[in-house]
Computed example of a mutant assay.
Amino acid sequence: MVQFGYTMMTEQAGPRALVDDVVAAEQAGFDFSVTSDHYFPWLASQGHAPYAWSVLGAAAQATSVIRLMTYVTCPTTRYHPAVVAQKAATMQLLSDDRFRLGLGSGENLNEHVVGGGWPAAHVRLEMLEEAVEIIKALFDGGYVNHHGTHFDVENARLWDLPDVRVPLGIAVSGERSCAVAGRLADLVIATEPKSELLSGFDRHGGGGKPRVGQLPVCFDRDRDAAVERAHDQFRWSAGGWKVNSELPGPSAFAQATTHVRPEDMAKAVPCGDDIEEFVEAVRAYTDAGFDEVALVQIGGRHQQPFIRWAREELLPALRAM
């Protein structure tokens, strides 16, 4: 049966609001939650970027059932993979085994802050693959020494390991990332309803493993207000992954999306309160083969009305789909 998730989007709300919202999402009946891990918002109008791992720790204590997950963390530049492994193991303990570690190759938007330049895409994927191997070795227990192309680990060990190993997901966007995910991941992550990504994951060993997708939506009883908000805060998504991973900051995203119109966003994102429009957008993911779909409600202060609507109308309609 398909499961439905709620997104704590750190780019559009402060840490206390994010925790309050995931508590409400749990009470509303969402099956799982995912959390972005950003140093910058995509656009200045979003206005936030708290530290995702502190938010996750607080969420683990404030909730009891809903599963938690990074969507996604980059373990190669801003964070060393040995530190990511420690954070993930700690989160699994704090959450009583409700945590999953989602990883990806990152965006210049977030990783440039530590200096050192932004590697080419093929190098970033090499770094991700090496980082995942380090994290998995630390999850195995014992001491780890690693001297690779991109990372060194000297006599590292995780002293607090959970009894239930942290499931590890990898975000995919093309054949090479599908190959890495199929070989190394316990689940696959994507932000587009493309069946070819899932078949690529399966070809490389991913058959039978969970597949998680993410869908932006903009609920509002006033559809025009929803369209305006989607354009104001989410037009960055129109650029596509090859563009979005390269731009260095919110001003660059604002400049790059000057051509995106409100009507373009209305076609790309379900806006308003038409249940059928939302259900059909989710159906694109389930038809492609995704068995988990996380919804992103656009607009930080509009979370609680969306969660109430989801509890009363949207989730029942999705489960009857």
Rank of each mutant, 00 (worst) to 15 (best):
F234M: 11
S251I: 02
A252L: 09
G239H: 05
D220H: 15
P216H: 10
E228K: 10
P262N: 04
K242F: 02
M265S: 03
A252S: 14
W236N: 02
Q214A: 10
H259E: 08
E246P: 00
D232H: 06
L247K: 06
T258A: 15
A266Y: 04
S251L: 14
R211L: 07
R229A: 11
R235Q: 04
R261K: 15
R235M: 12
T258P: 05
K267S: 12
P270I: 13
A268H: 01
R211K: 15
M265L: 14
P210S: 10
L247H: 07
R261I: 01
R235V: 04
E246S: 10
M265V: 06
R229F: 06
W236Q: 04
A268F: 06
F234K: 01
V217N: 04
C218Y: 08
V269R: 10
F219K: 12
E228I: 02
C218L: 12
P270G: 02
Q233P: 00
P262G: 11
S237Y: 11
P262T: 00
D222W: 04
N244C: 13
P250H: 06
A256N: 03
S245C: 08
A268T: 02
K267H: 09
S245A: 13
S237I: 12
V260N: 06
V269T: 12
V260F: 11
M265C: 09
A238Q: 07
P248T: 02
A230R: 08
P248D: 03
E228W: 00
W236F: 15
H231K: 05
T257F: 14
A254N: 00
P262V: 06
A252E: 14
A256P: 02
P210T: 05
E263Y: 13
V212N: 00
R235P: 03
V269L: 11
L247R: 07
A266N: 03
T258L: 15
V217I: 15
A238L: 02
R223M: 07
F219Q: 05
D224H: 11
Q255F: 06
A254K: 02
F219P: 01
N244F: 00
K242D: 08
D222G: 08
D232C: 12
V269E: 01
A230F: 08
E228G: 09
T258Y: 04
S237F: 10
L247F: 07
P270Y: 07
L247P: 09
